[in-house]
Simulated assay, not measured.
Amino acid sequence: AIEVSAHKPYVRGEGIPADKYTIKPIDEEEIEFADFGFKLSIIEELMYIKGLLKPKFDLYEFADWYKDREIDIDEEGYDPIDEVIQYFKKLPIPKRLAPEITEIYQDGGNDIYMNLSPFSGGAVEFWDIECSDDIKHFPNLKKATLCYAKEHICDELIILGVDAEWI
């Protein structure tokens, strides 16, 4: 058998829209989070589970897109990558999406954590929920399954009317 193919050399970042991961201000009210770990749990639900927050962040694509320096995921992926942390910290979450949150489910294999630190093995405290203040933004939050939270958070969520448990 003879196979004929054309090889197009890979060009870093080619095919990724130039503004795909550029954070743009939104023309609506946004949620002001007190706790980064809580925000990450909300991003998991809105971006990866419900598909309501776009673009869907992909670490490997982001590393190809990012121009300020070369991000070596194989080398850096054992700890959270600073540029990725900054992306999620700056990412605006519209208030209109808050009613969509009825549950949060934390697991070491969640897409959000795999995009922050794909080789960490899940045993890290970088993204623990440290305070429950942000629950005030999510009136429909009724269930929380936790693995990245300080010990008091589960009890606080229960007191606030959320069916909360440890994974």
Rank of each mutant, 00 (worst) to 15 (best):
K136L: 00
K142S: 11
D133K: 12
L157C: 10
E14L: 13
I16V: 14
I112M: 07
E125S: 14
K20P: 04
A164N: 04
E28N: 06
I2P: 02
K136I: 13
I43C: 01
L146V: 00
S117W: 09
G108T: 05
L40P: 00
K39N: 02
Y48Q: 03
I112S: 01
D72T: 09
N110H: 09
E130V: 02
D27A: 13
E44D: 05
Y48H: 11
N140G: 07
K89I: 14
E32P: 02
Y148N: 03
C131S: 09
I104R: 00
W166V: 12
E156P: 05
L146F: 02
W65F: 08
L53A: 04
E29R: 03
A6S: 09
F88A: 10
L52V: 02
V162K: 11
W166S: 07
E61F: 10
K56C: 06
G51L: 02
I159D: 14
D128E: 12
D27V: 01
K8Q: 13
D27Y: 01
H152Y: 06
I81K: 06
I153D: 12
K142W: 06
V124I: 15
Y148L: 06
E29Y: 03
E30V: 14
C154A: 11
L116D: 08
E125L: 10
Y66E: 06
A149G: 07
F119R: 14
D19L: 13
G109S: 06
I81W: 07
I135T: 05
H7V: 13
Y66M: 08
D72N: 15
W166K: 11
D27E: 12
K67F: 07
D133H: 13
K8E: 12
I23E: 08
L46I: 01
I167Y: 11
L53I: 01
D111L: 01
Y105L: 05
P118Y: 03
T145K: 14
